[in-house]
Amino acid sequence: MHKNTIDHVVIATDFSDNADRALLYAIELCSRLGANLSLFHVLTFDKLDKGEEAVTVIEDKMERLRKNYLYDNKKVRYRTTYIKIGKNKEEELLSIFKEAPVDLLLMGTSGAGKTARLLGSTASFMLHAAPAPVLLIPPHATFEPIRHITFACDYEQIQTLEELKPLAVFAKLLQADVRILHVHPQPANMPLGTAMKSLAVDSLFEEVEHELDFVRGSNPEAGIKQYLETTPTDCLAIKPRKHERGFWQKLLTQSVSDSLIGFLPIPVYAL
């Protein structure tokens, strides 16, 4: 059963400029969510063996982040630092969810041209495997209050309302409105089951200002992109399928990520 608060946000850092900017974003976000913030870095054996990274070097870099951004910052409550060492970066990233209760994992992304590779590997893996929401922060993003969230929703793949509750909590804490978008070839003639699920989702967001939007089209990517170009949106929310290659995993493959995810200068929140 999902709770009604976001208490612990973890930011994964590789100490790059993009990661530092994502940390600044995380600090502002945590101040509005009332959440504690922790730092997280994965040190893989290959980099350790080649001398590219060492535990003492990583600890020094973490201390720099804490001194520069966290220790004297009254906007955020710094919780702790996690440094994981292992062979597989993705597996070690997932291990954080066993190490501590994590309500939101925040990751900075690479710039245009690298987005496809990123979403095809580490970030894509986390979107589909993480047991808690993941927030991707685009490069050069500075924090802006999240007031309008577009939730690109595939009603047909929703199993239970419980799995959508973190988004409702996220929106409520930020006092954001949610537009629940569904792309369908014939919105007026949706299957009864899909229509019933839309009504159930509508009830889940009853404590949040929201509306149901339907876009006519057979191409979800094109419909979502067109909607975002004409509708003020501070954050795109999606619900990737977990542990299987389905609709949303296809949506986040290399060819599509450049035109949709990479096209967005706003954060992407993945349930």
Rank of each mutant, 00 (worst) to 15 (best):
K3T: 14
N4R: 15
T5L: 08
H8D: 03
A12V: 06
S16E: 01
L23S: 05
L23D: 04
Y25W: 09
A26D: 08
E28K: 15
L29Q: 05
R32V: 07
G34T: 06
L39P: 07
H41I: 05
F45H: 00
D46W: 07
D49N: 14
D49C: 12
G51F: 06
A54G: 15
V57M: 12
I58V: 15
D60S: 14
K61T: 03
M62L: 12
K74I: 02
R79T: 05
Y82M: 06
Y82F: 11
I83K: 06
K87I: 13
N88Y: 10
K89E: 10
E92A: 15
F97W: 05
K98M: 10
P101E: 00
V102N: 11
L104F: 06
T109P: 05
S110E: 12
L119Q: 03
L119P: 11
A123K: 13
S124T: 08
F125I: 05
L127P: 08
H128W: 06
V134C: 07
L135N: 03
L135W: 02
I137D: 02
P139S: 08
F143Q: 01
E144R: 15
I146F: 06
I149T: 11
F151V: 13
D154L: 08
I158G: 06
Q159T: 12
T160E: 14
P166Q: 06
L167M: 09
A171F: 04
Q175S: 14
A176G: 12
R179A: 14
R179V: 13
I180L: 13
L181Q: 09
H182E: 03
V183T: 08
P185V: 02
P187M: 03
A188C: 05
A188K: 13
N189Y: 01
N189P: 00
P191V: 00
L192M: 03
K197G: 02
K197M: 11
A200G: 03
A200I: 01
D202W: 04
F205D: 09
D213K: 15
F214N: 11
S218A: 12
E221D: 01
I224Q: 03
L228E: 04
L236Q: 03
A237L: 08
I238A: 01
K239G: 09
R241S: 12
H243S: 05
G246C: 07
Q249E: 13
K250C: 09
K250E: 11
T253N: 11
Q254A: 15
Q254P: 12
S255W: 01
S257F: 00
L260Y: 02
I266D: 05
Y269I: 10
A270W: 04
